[in-house]
């Protein structure tokens, strides 16, 4: 298999399913009991697509990312369900097989990654290390350098700076270099977990633009994970809303933002302040996220939900299709009002 040195996505034809998460259930064992961190989550990432997972801390979005990469802590158990990349189950792979896929097929840009550079090695050499470990063929030093230079240019860094040490980079530059590293082996999927959370707003904007540009140009498939729905709105085409370990709504980003069908999505949107649009009263979400050791019965959102009825306490709503590519797990989705964007 001859490898080109082009920077590209090794995914398949755009629009075909690439990564399928099916009925994934993942628990953490603790002394107090089992934490049901991911409960029956199903979604698909298509080739060339950017999707988002949004939710509050502890809702299970990062646990999903860790499950996809199989980087879970020792006390976690994948109870059931499957993760398939190009039709191949990742859950059944042994550690060595997974290690070979990890960076090569699925790479990641995680929160605070910019602080994970080893301070005593040059940035370029650290990317070179990743290439040596994960690139399927042995490259010459010259080829490696050329590839790193190309990666640097792609993420908006001056290739000459690859000779620098991490402390000589600003936070934004380091995060760009993290993206370059994530792209180094032409992955099929990039998981970006809070990629801009620690950054200032102007730098965040630059990084998000860069990621969006790369995703479009290379046809890269990216899963964005964020607590900030504004970030998700910027960069994704489809999104899932998570609450207490469950995927409660899944749909095209514009559909979820303008016509949310789950009360949680609705309240989340209603409680997000914005600098554009008319100044409006924001609706607080009362209460606190539930304890996942003993999650609420029925729908996990019912204790905080203004639409909750007896049915919500007794029965867990399944994810049902309510429109094209739009599904929601709520008994009362028809009652949730339309938002219709900020301008209204």
């Amino acid at each position: 298999m001859a490898q080109t040195l082009e920077i590209e996505s090794r995914g398949g034809k755009a629009g075909t399913p690439l990564l399928e998460v099916q009925n994934l259930v993942m628990h953490y064992g603790t002394k107090e009991g089992d934490v049901s961190a991911v409960e029956d989550v199903t979604f698909t990432l298509n080739n060339g697509e950017a999707i988002g997972l949004v939710g509050e801390s502890g809702c299970g979005k990062t646990s999903i990312a860790l499950t996809l990469l199989r980087l879970l802590p020792d006390n976690s158990v994948v109870k059931s369900g499957d993760v398939r990349l190009d039709g191949e189950s990742l859950i059944g792979l042994d550690e060595e097989q997974m290690r070979r896929r990890r960076w090569r097929d699925i790479s990641m840009v995680f929160q605070g990654a910019m602080n994970s550079w080893n301070p005593v090695y040059r940035i370029g050499d650290q990317i070179r290390e990743a290439l040596r470990l994960h690139w399927p063929e042995t490259l010459t030093y010259q080829e490696e350098t050329e590839r790193i230079a190309a990666l640097f240019e792609l993420v908006g860094l001056n290739p000459a700076t690859m000779e620098r040490y991490p402390h000589e980079f600003s936070g934004g530059m380091r995060q760009r270099a993290v993206i370059a590293m994530a792209l180094s082996c032409n992955p099929k999927v990039i998981i970006a977990d809070e990629p801009t959370t620690a950054l200032d707003v102007i730098v965040q904007d630059q990084i998000l633009r860069e990621l969006k540009k790369i995703q479009k140009e290379l046809g890269m498939s990216i899963i964005y994970i964020s607590h900030d729905i504004a970030v998700i709105a910027e960069v994704t085409e489809r999104m899932g809303v998570m609450y207490a370990g469950k995927l409660v709504e899944l749909g095209s980003t514009i559909e979820v933002f303008h016509r949310p069908k789950h009360p949680y999505s609705y309240l989340l949107l209603k409680s997000t302040p914005s600098i554009t649009g008319p100044r409006r009263k924001l609706a607080p979400l009362e209460g606190e996220p539930p304890n996942l050791i003993e999650p609420p019965s029925g729908c996990r959102f019912h204790p905080r939900c203004p639409f909750a009825t007896q049915q919500c306490i007794d029965e867990d709503p399944p994810l049902t299709t309510v429109g094209e590519g739009h599904s929601v797990a709520c008994w009362h989705w028809q009652e949730v009002p339309e938002i219709g964007g900020l301008q209204k």
Partner: peptide
């Protein structure tokens, strides 16, 4: 609309 959702 949003205001009516807020419990007292």
């Amino acid at each position: 609309m949003a205001d009516t959702l807020t419990p007292p």
